[in-house]
């Protein structure tokens, strides 16, 4: 297979195995500090707020909003060319942390900062489920 046709598959590590396993079940998980209650993403062995080491995976609501976005008109590689134009966004989760994602939307010109979102999962044939977002009706 042509290497350029391969999407950027996340290289899963010991630290992130639980996150990707939950994605496979179509659940978005983030870490919550048992000492100070802060939620964080992406996963770490320590709490970014209090440096505590008691972190627990919790299921996020999957709701969030667009913090910023761009519409990619020239794909990063040929593997993404069929998806152009596609939205890359920074999504602020209801629990606080920000994550990068795609917003799956019929008309990319509808995307706005502040737009309410909910998580959806894209099951890639490579065997990984990628959390993405779609506009949420409120």
């Amino acid at each position: 297979m042509n290497e350029m046709l391969t999407r950027n598959i996340p290289p899963i590590t010991a630290e992130t195995a639980e996150y990707w396993a939950s994605c496979a079940r179509h659940e978005l998980q983030i870490q919550r500090c048992l000492e100070c209650g802060t939620c964080q993403f992406f996963p770490r062995i320590m709490c970014t707020a209090c440096s505590g080491k008691s972190l627990r995976w919790v299921r996020a609501s999957g709701r969030g909003q667009v913090k910023s976005f761009t519409i990619v008109r020239r794909a990063v590689s040929e593997a993404y060319a069929a998806e152009v134009p596609y939205v890359v966004a920074l999504v602020e989760l209801e629990e606080g942390p920000t994550m990068m994602s795609n917003v799956v939307v019929g008309n990319v010109d509808e995307i706005r900062i502040g737009m309410p979102l909910e998580v959806v999962f894209d099951d890639w044939p490579e065997g990984v489920s990628i959390p993405k977002f779609k506009p949420r009706m409120v």
Binding site: R7, T70, V88
Partner: peptide
């Protein structure tokens, strides 16, 4: 793991 799968280009990161 948390950015590249979404297909952002360098201009896209700055566009944000």
């Amino acid at each position: 793991q948390f950015e590249r799968p979404y297909g952002a280009t360098v201009p896209a990161y700055y566009a944000l």
